[in-house]
């Protein structure tokens, strides 16, 4: 074996080991959450007891009480409605920004993107008052609307990049063939930006699925989402670690399944249209 290949092998192994270490680091809080969710309360506060008996009691308690199901249903409705809406509206706007040129374009683009950066803490009280005024308080629709505040700008931003990367000639060709703008959009643009849309969708879903501040203040009882369930577990008589972590595990699963199943699109999409591929 030559020196060069040995050297290469060593380096490859080194990279593997480094990646392994990083992966374990990123993994370990999840593993710990999983472990805590599988333990009895007395053992949770004793990290040394690695061989503490595992139990499904926390999940059983969770399912028996059933309080958590509506939270999951609400979260799912909000995530889906908001994501679909943001993608449709956002992609249209992105097309406008990518394909038209007008004087105030960059100012408008900045205005939209800047919404993504509004600190939730700063706007949640006025939102509450507005929602009361229009009788939307404590509905999933209100949260679905609120989440457009960060998901639409994000979508516009991402999709603008993807659309700008599509050579305009392709669209021109379609025009020549007699397509109007809408047909071109549907038949030429959408198929090409689909991977980008998938990547965008994942982040929209993660953002709405995990959002806490709005959900907490703008829901009373009927629109509560999974992240706000934490409030139920922070009890005066101690944190209900078991149920909380069990909820955490259950909440992470759908996102993970979705993200991993579209991993290829996601990685491609994560170039944010910045690099032609």
């Amino acid at each position: 074996m030559s020196n060069v290949t040995t050297h290469k092998k060593v380096r490859a192994t080194g990279r593997g080991v480094l990646l392994l270490i990083f992966s374990l680091g990123f993994l370990f809080p999840f593993i710990w959450m999983l472990l805590v969710s599988l333990r009895n309360r007395v053992d949770i506060l004793d990290p040394g007891n690695i061989f503490a008996p595992l139990t499904l009691i926390n999940y059983e308690t969770l399912f028996a009480a059933g309080d958590i199901f509506p939270y999951f249903i609400n979260s799912a409705i909000i995530a889906v409605v908001n994501t679909v809406f943001s993608l449709v509206v956002g992609t249209f706007a992105a097309y406008g920004f990518a394909r038209y040129n007008w004087k105030k374009r960059e100012d408008r683009a900045f205005f939209i993107l800047s919404q993504r950066f509004l600190p939730a803490m700063a706007v949640v009280i006025p939102f509450f008052l507005m929602a009361t005024f229009v009788h939307l308080l404590d509905t999933v629709w209100l949260l679905a609307i609120c989440y457009t505040l960060f998901n639409v700008p994000f979508t516009v931003w991402m999709m603008r990049g993807f659309i700008e990367d599509i050579p305009f000639e392709l669209e021109e060709a379609a025009f020549v063939d007699g397509c109007n703008r809408m047909q071109t959009l549907r038949q030429v643009v959408f198929p090409l930006v689909l991977p980008g849309m998938v990547a965008t969708a994942i982040f929209c879903i993660i953002n709405s699925w995990n959002e806490f501040v709005f959900a907490n203040f703008l829901s009373v009882v009927h629109a509560k989402t999974v992240p706000t369930s934490v409030m139920m577990y922070l009890s005066v008589s101690g944190v209900k670690w078991g149920e909380m972590t069990a909820t955490g595990v259950l909440a992470a699963i759908p996102v993970l399944v979705f993200a991993v199943s579209v991993q290829k699109h996601m990685i491609r999409g994560m170039t944010f249209g910045a690099v032609k591929g």
Binding site: I125, F128, L129, T132, F133, L137, D138, F217, V220, V221
Partner: peptide
């Protein structure tokens, strides 16, 4: 407090 201010749900 927010409820007392406008919600009236409780």
């Amino acid at each position: 407090l927010l409820d007392a201010q406008g919600g009236g749900n409780y």
